[in-house]
């Protein structure tokens, strides 16, 4: 069973990797997104002379991490899932000797695997652009990775909820945007959580995204 899940994940990654343009475009996307965030903060910094108590270097590092994490936390299979419900490809998934849930967990793993690859690539490039020197301890790195791995099931459940909405609605896009916005805000991808109104940061403690 574990074998099947990993094979599915591998298939998914292969499917993405067959077109080089996928990788290049996704990576550029991430770089541009990161660039925009950092420029906004630079503008704030230049105007007001501070960035809510963060140093400029801290802000840049924060967003380099965001660039790495965005694909891992916001990518997923909900679109694929609802398309397959709508165009009937779901029959293939229902005929597999593996539960629907596990089947998609495999695909989701593949998506996130590829996302991690894109994220890390974009992260490394931005380190060069912004001349960030990373010196983190091994312990920090490992706990960072562990936290990211723990997040995978959580985001997967969210993906499942939005994806299976395909049974009821044909506008997944709206749901998808909603899901993304929630994840963006509560996981601090847009801005550090400490900068939000207290209610939001409090809520985010209970929402484990």
């Amino acid at each position: 069973m574990i074998g099947s899940i990993f094979t599915l994940a591998r298939m998914y990654i292969k499917q993405y990797s067959i077109y080089k343009s996928n990788y290049i475009l996704f990576t550029i996307n991430r770089l541009v997104e990161g660039l925009v965030y950092i420029f906004v903060w630079l503008a704030i910094y230049n105007q007001t002379g501070n960035a809510e108590g963060f140093t400029l270097n801290e802000i840049v590092i924060y967003y380099v991490l965001v660039i790495i994490l965005i694909p891992v936390t916001t990518w997923g299979i909900n679109e694929e899932m609802s398309h397959s419900i709508r165009n009937g490809k779901i029959h293939k998934e229902l005929l597999a000797p593996l539960s629907y849930f596990k089947y998609y967990f495999g695909l989701n793993l593949g998506e996130i695997g590829f996302g991690a690859f894109v994220g890390v690539s974009a992260g490394i490039i931005s380190c060069f652009i912004w001349q960030v020197n990373i010196n983190i301890s091994l312990v920090n790195l490992i706990s960072f990775i562990v936290v990211v791995l723990l997040g995978i099931p959580v985001t997967f459940f969210l993906q499942m909820i939005v994806g299976t909405a395909g049974f009821y609605t044909n506008s997944i896009w709206g749901m998808q945007i909603l899901r993304k916005s929630i994840v963006y805000i509560f996981s601090g991808l847009i801005a550090p959580l400490t900068l939000f109104p207290r209610m939001v940061s409090k809520t985010s403690k209970y929402i484990t995204i």
Partner: peptide, 22 residues
């Protein structure tokens, strides 16, 4: 009218997946 093969991948990859799953 539908396919169970993976659209973008070579045919043999779908066969390998079947081998693994079953």
């Amino acid at each position: 009218q539908k396919t169970q093969l993976w659209w973008d991948l070579p045919v043999i990859e779908s066969f390998r997946l079947i081998k693994k799953m079953y």
